[in-house]
Write a protein that binds this DNA or RNA. Structure first.
Lengths: 204, 204, 204, 204
DNA sequence: GATGAATGAGTTTTCATTCAT
DNA sequence: TATGAATGAAAACTCATTCAT
């Protein structure tokens, strides 16, 4: 019992330090960009010694990876739940947009990181699996395929369209940020869906 | 006269050196990525002395900027001509997609740079003007506004939609690259336009 | 009585832990070399906590010293017994060679350590006493002096010749290792003695 | 002509810096041992910036290698000339001993390095070719083989005996150093040859 | 006595930039 | 103008040692 307690306390403390590091890393990243992210500064920001970072993470790369993963976790979870749900495909797409717009409204600075990560993800010679992004594309593609199966959408190359859709969301997000976040989220999310559903062309 | 000749020759030579540096920088960038771009290597690639780089450019940042500008110049020119032309707005959009898909098919590696640059462009604390990208958004937005004026498109928030459109193109490009560039360019360009024109929804 | 038992048990346990540490250190040393010998790894190899090492040893240097001492103990004991025995001086020398060749055939990797230690021993500013090696030289010198006294050997500078003899053995060992341990131990041991007894020169 | 002069001056200056680094490295090595040899200190000792070291050498390992090579160069040359000469095999061996004893009398501290290098040479997992030492063994073995061919020496395993001979020399050197270099070099060199020629055994 | 998380000084290496020629 | 040797600040990472529990 005593031992259990001790071990538990230890685990909690460890988790705290680990989280502290991740938070420090994300803060620094958002504040200073990738170039400002040095192990020295992360340690300082986290209020621990440089060496301690290497107790918790193998190297800078893995720490960064973990930090980014951790900060996108809420978004990933929310989207996951949404896409797993049983809304109609078009509602799912709108929900997806909404999630993303909301998330980036709240974590406006993080988009910088996302873009960074996207770059690394796709084109780095790194060993990074491009997991997060590719998974996202695949899941949206599944929704599109569902839509086709249900006779809702015309036939389409689902992976390509999924990629387009996701990026279109990013475009909207960027524009919102550029404009100082104008207009409400719901409206913009609806507009994205609308365009992807019905197109821009005026109908008589 | 003699003096003029000399001066002219000098200018030509200087321009040549300058271009040589830019080419070297872009080659290195596409071959080795940003991490591989050191002043040493640029000088070696260009066949000049390291110090000479600083004769032509203030510092690394400005050199890089110029190099990226130079490498996107063909794309920018082509798009510019297209958007300045007098095609119908929807043809212009399709042309825009086509330009981009073609350009990145041919300069596949440059997309890495573009994404990198995009990040820097939008969110860095760098003094980079985000010229290229913002201009692009604005011009596409103009086309959209034209479309609206001509009664071709429904009313829309042109800047946001333009951003979406541009990013959707990037999504398509990324997916093509991920798939090993599947399908022909024209078809994919048409698909993008189609979706933005008519949407995904099946019509009876 | 109870207290005595407890104390004894404690002592046994401590000795066990101590030996475990030494074994771990030697294993690591032979497997990975000096560079691979970190306190972390020794602790892991010994299955104890890092901090515990400092319960048993003042610091790394002393632990290493003890570990090396322990691993050469068998050789030292065997040689000691031999040189203490009452063989003729020349038989003792041959026995000495045999001991060494055999020991390093079996602990081939340890020779690396020996050489390392030799360096430290003789020339480091370390507080290492150069005990092992100097003692060895002295004892061989004693055998040589015995030989001289018995009219077996010509007069000689026994310390210098002893050093030569010991190093010649090392040379043979190195060559055997380099060749992949060619030829049988006895023959090589005999050859060393032979040369030191009769020299290389052919006699008519 | 002018250009030639400039280039020559440059070369000389470069060689000077390079030599300065090597000298600094050897000095530090002899003064402080391997553990004391850090790039920081070498730079300080050489009176240059840390970065400059990396202009002249790829990394620490190669610098060290070059430094050691450079400091043994005189010995290697002298021995080489001697063994290439046309003395009788036994005179060559004596000359070899003489060279070595003299060299280490003068560079007493360097023996530490030699031993270090020997260790690295033979047993490191390093990419070091064990050139210096192996070559030495081979060349002495050739002399021995010559001796056998000329009917001077009994048949023998020349590589093993060569290794023994070289190490016996080292033993003598160590003993001399330990004793504070007692006795004159010639006498000790002669004693080594004597033993290897005629052995220790007293003849009636 | 045993633990192991935390430390931080110390190490190698990189590279944009300068400046004397 | 062109050069390229020299710089030195900064970065990632290591590891023996300590100390609160």
């Amino acid at each position: 019992m005593d031992v259990d307690k001790k071990q538990e306390r230890k685990k909690v403390l460890e988790a705290l330090t680990r989280q502290g590091i991740l938070d420090a890393a994300v803060n620094l990243l958002t504040r200073e960009g990738i170039q400002g992210l040095t192990m020295d500064r992360v340690a300082a920001e986290a209020g621990i010694a440089k060496g301690t970072l290497y107790v918790y993470f193998e190297n800078k790369e893995q720490m960064l990876e973990a930090a980014i993963d951790a900060s996108f976790d809420p978004l990933v979870r929310e989207c996951s739940a949404l896409l797993d749900g049983d809304l109609a495909p078009d509602r799912k797409l709108e929900g997806f947009s909404l999630c993303h717009l909301r998330f980036f409204d709240e974590h406006r600075d993080l988009i910088r990181v996302l873009l960074f990560d996207r770059e690394r993800t796709h084109f780095g010679k790194s060993r990074y699996t491009d997991g997060r992004y590719r998974t996202s594309v695949k899941r949206v593609a599944d929704v599109l395929d569902d839509g086709v199966r249900q006779g809702l959408f015309s036939t389409l190359d689902s992976m390509k369209v999924a990629a387009m859709f996701i990026e279109a969301n990013m475009g909207m997000i960027m524009q919102r940020i550029h404009d100082g976040i104008s207009g409400d989220v719901e409206k913009d999310a609806r507009q994205i869906t609308e365009i992807f559903m019905k197109g821009l062309r005026k109908r008589k």
